[in-house]
Computed example of a mutant assay.
Amino acid sequence: MGGRRRVDNLTALAVLATLVEGQMHPYEMATTLRDRGKDQDMGIKWGSFYTVVRNMARHGLIEAVGSVREGRRPERTVYRITDDGRAELVDWARELVATPVPEQPRFRAGLSVLAALHPDEATTLLRARLAVLEDGIRSDRAALAGHARVVPRLFLVENEYDLTIREAEAAWIRSLLTELTSGSYPGLDEWRTRHEAPTPRTGPADGGDTIP
């Protein structure tokens, strides 16, 4: 599994997963992916979508089988997945499911510089984030329950995962807020003092030139 992908772009994975269902032209692929919300799962950049499709054909993952014309629109090339493309789809799925890789979400970056904020401000901001998270969790939980009545669970597992991750984040923030508001967070007094202490002078103490 793994190794260097011929087209190392998750958009290519999305295209393979779509074409395994049948032949399509790129506009049809894009419409299907949007309708299913795969652009959120794969981080598809639509501006490079056609370039990715052409690269996949160049590398033998998909192949043109003809063209169609709808009304006065230009002809559209219809593609199908190749045997190599099917093998790539399966191998790629195995790698993504089995092999964890480091990921750096923006929230983690923010936490890494949390000390730059006064603890009271950090508490306020975390409460605001938690409120947004909880609203989204309620909405997505209801949406998932509705989808589950008409869509097999197999095609909703990524939504379950996303919801579970955000529920875990919300639980962690609640725990952190409890420590911050109760005063039990280790080093909280030192953190607060660092922000409330007078700012030391950084310029010359007695005369001399200063930078304007």
Rank of each mutant, 00 (worst) to 15 (best):
D35E: 15
A122S: 14
Y79T: 00
A145E: 12
G47C: 11
M42A: 02
E158V: 05
D120A: 13
V150D: 04
V101Q: 06
M29F: 02
G136C: 06
L16I: 10
A109W: 08
G71H: 01
L163K: 06
E190H: 09
T32M: 12
D135W: 05
G207F: 07
L89G: 02
T181C: 02
R76W: 02
R94W: 04
V68W: 03
R153Y: 02
E134P: 02
L156H: 09
R106G: 01
E169R: 12
R127V: 14
E134V: 03
A12N: 06
T164W: 07
L16H: 00
S184Y: 03
L89V: 07
V68T: 10
L163H: 01
R166E: 12
R201G: 15
V15F: 01
A197L: 15
S67V: 01
A93I: 14
I211T: 12
D206T: 14
G37V: 09
P100L: 05
R201N: 09
P119M: 02
R194T: 15
R69L: 06
I165E: 08
I211S: 04
I165L: 13
A142W: 03
G60K: 03
R192V: 10
P212W: 04
R58L: 14
R72N: 07
D39C: 12
T77D: 01
T18M: 03
Y27P: 01
T31N: 15
L133D: 05
A17P: 01
A142F: 09
L130D: 03
L133F: 10
R76L: 05
E196H: 11
G60L: 04
W92I: 00
A205H: 13
A17T: 01
L16E: 00
A109K: 10
D8R: 03
G203P: 04
E167R: 14
Q104G: 01
I44P: 00
Y50T: 11
R36F: 12
E121V: 11
E70K: 04
P186I: 15
R73E: 03
S48H: 13
W191C: 02
R80A: 11
P26E: 03
T123F: 08
S175G: 14
E70R: 06
K45N: 14
